[in-house]
């Protein structure tokens, strides 16, 4: 559960994720995630949809969603890439948008696009079990199972890596046929659980 103290300022949160509050709060649905008409159209087109509400007021507001674990990410002008379904709450000062992720989405089943959060402030992301944060440096690239990936930040290039051989086709595969390889400089968030992915069983 995430508790947000507010004094007249506002946060953007996933629609319906408020579980309790004290003080004075006003909830307003933001059509199109507060990204204006252009953002709305992009989200509609890319399928990376999220319904967002703006919470403004005085006091403490509590957010939670399906008992999933909440991880706070501080952003200082850098960009966080996260799946829309894993984003719970952001400071109102943060800009959200959509971006193309490349081939990866095809195997994760999350679509080819992802949500970006940038600016200064904090964002709360959700994971099934507490997320492990892994640093990627040029010497140490990281490979992640698409089903366990939730978010990344920093200057990272991602490649889609497929180890599909004839063995996979005859049912003797290694079980880890698809991976996302991150190279560059940044942080990757993984959850200790795997979503069901198309690539998960081969």
């Amino acid at each position: 559960m995430l508790a947000v103290d507010m004094s007249g300022d506002s946060v953007k949160a996933k629609n319906g994720s408020m579980v309790a509050y004290d003080g004075q709060m006003a909830f307003k649905k933001m059509s199109g995630g507060g990204e204006g008409l252009r953002g709305m159209v992009t989200r509609r087109l890319t399928g990376e949809q999220m319904t967002v509400m703006e919470v403004r007021g005085q006091g403490t507001c509590y957010f939670a969603d399906r008992a999933s674990e909440i991880n706070l990410v501080s952003l200082h002008g850098d960009k966080l890439y996260v799946e829309a379904s894993n984003l719970l709450c952001t400071d109102a000062g943060l800009r959200t948008g959509t971006t193309f992720t490349g081939l990866r989405g095809g195997a994760t089943g999350n679509g080819l696009f992802t949500t970006t959060v940038e600016g200064m402030g904090q964002a709360a992301i959700m994971s099934d079990g507490p997320a492990v944060i892994l640093r990627v440096t040029p010497q140490y690239p990281l490979s992640v199972d698409p089903g366990a990936y939730i978010a990344h930040q920093g200057n990272l290039q991602q490649h889609f890596q497929a180890g599909v051989t004839f063995r996979t086709l005859i049912g003797e595969g290694g079980g880890e046929a698809f991976q996302i390889r991150f190279e560059g400089d940044g942080l990757v968030y993984v959850q200790p659980s795997e979503r069901n992915t198309i690539g998960g069983d081969v």
Partner: peptide
């Protein structure tokens, strides 16, 4: 390891079925 329990790795690791 049991199939599909790896979530991430550093370095060079290969995963091969038992039948290899």
């Amino acid at each position: 390891l049991q199939k599909g329990k790896m979530i991430a790795y550093y370095g060079r690791i290969e995963f091969n079925g038992i039948g290899h």
